[in-house]
């Protein structure tokens, strides 16, 4: 016993990942491979880890910047904001905090711009805003964007990033699935193109509505995509999920997405697809 005690003391190990004193903002650690990356390099690489290829989550602003032609974006419905329709406890506070932290009014920005010179309606979700969850305002903004695209016979691209329906708006959130899917259906009936881009994460009520209804569905490498969250599934089936389960590559293999497109190639791929759907040819 006593010897054990000394033995243990002898072999105590220093953890590998002791906090290093990193100046705020200059360096960042990759969530996947733990590589310490120079922030400037990471940004230049579209926030993809140079070492392992991990795609960091983007803000709306970053996404618009790397996707659209410079200065081509104009926003729709910027004035829409969430209320607390069910008087759900702590919801108003969470909204205020999210707004303060992200500088956004809600979890989606919609508008129009061009990609490779092709005019397109875009909706970009931001997982930093209450996990990109869909409540009334997210549903309303997406629906209005889809309707605008239909009225003006424009293609539509949605960058999805969401944990699912927003609990704090209860059934109003669930019904946004119907509202958005319905408008996407009408846009489709009108013979117009809808490209859905699934980014990390696309889950729950968003994956089970407009996200998986695209004519063409692209995904970013490694993005988590599914209906039920992995933790919930593990708790239900009481076993660990296989490596790569519900990742973009898994969905490609199962036939639910058309392509997994690395971020640096995304804008070019979208431009190509838009060009192939241009009416009347060049």
């Amino acid at each position: 016993m006593v010897f054990d005690f000394f033995k243990k003391a002898k072999y105590f190990t220093v953890k590998q990942d002791v906090k290093r004193d990193i100046p705020e903002g200059l360096w960042v650690k990759c969530d996947l491979c733990n590589e310490i990356l120079f922030t400037k390099d990471l940004e230049r690489n579209h926030k993809v880890c140079q070492k392992c290829g991990h795609h960091f989550r983007l803000t709306v602003e970053e996404r618009l910047h790397i996707t659209l032609d410079p200065d081509s974006f104009s926003e729709y419905d910027a004035e829409l904001e969430s209320s607390n329709p069910l008087d759900f406890p702590e919801y108003s506070g969470r909204l205020a905090t999210a707004q303060e932290q992200t500088g956004l009014r809600e979890a989606v920005i919609t508008g129009e711009g061009s990609i490779g010179g092709h005019r397109v309606v875009v909706a970009v979700m931001d997982s930093h805003f209450i996990m990109g969850s869909m409540g009334s305002v997210v549903g309303e903004k997406i629906t209005r964007a889809v309707e605008f695209a239909q009225e003006n016979r424009l293609p539509l691209i949605v960058f999805c990033a969401s944990g699912g329906a927003r609990m704090q708006e209860g059934m109003l959130s669930l019904l946004q699935m119907a509202k958005t899917s319905m408008s996407v259906g009408r846009h489709s009936e009108a013979g117009l193109l809808y490209i859905s881009v699934l980014t990390d994460p696309t889950m729950g009520g968003v994956s089970a509505s407009f996200a998986l209804l695209g004519d063409i569905i692209l995904a970013e490498p490694g993005a988590l995509i599914g209906f039920a969250g992995p933790r919930v599934i593990e708790q239900t089936i009481r076993q660990k999920l296989p490596e790569g389960f519900q990742r973009a590559e898994f969905l490609l293999e199962k036939g639910f997405v058309d392509r997994v497109v690395p971020r640096p190639q995304m804008a070019g791929t979208l431009a190509g697809l838009l060009s192939l759907h241009e009416r009347g040819g060049v």
Binding site: M182, V184, A208, S209, L213, I225, F227, K254, G255
Partner: peptide
């Protein structure tokens, strides 16, 4: 597992639309 592999989200989305 099976539900996810066979596209639970897609099946629900399609029905709604």
């Amino acid at each position: 597992l099976g539900a996810e592999q066979r596209g639970q989200a897609e099946a629900i989305a399609k029905n709604i639309m």
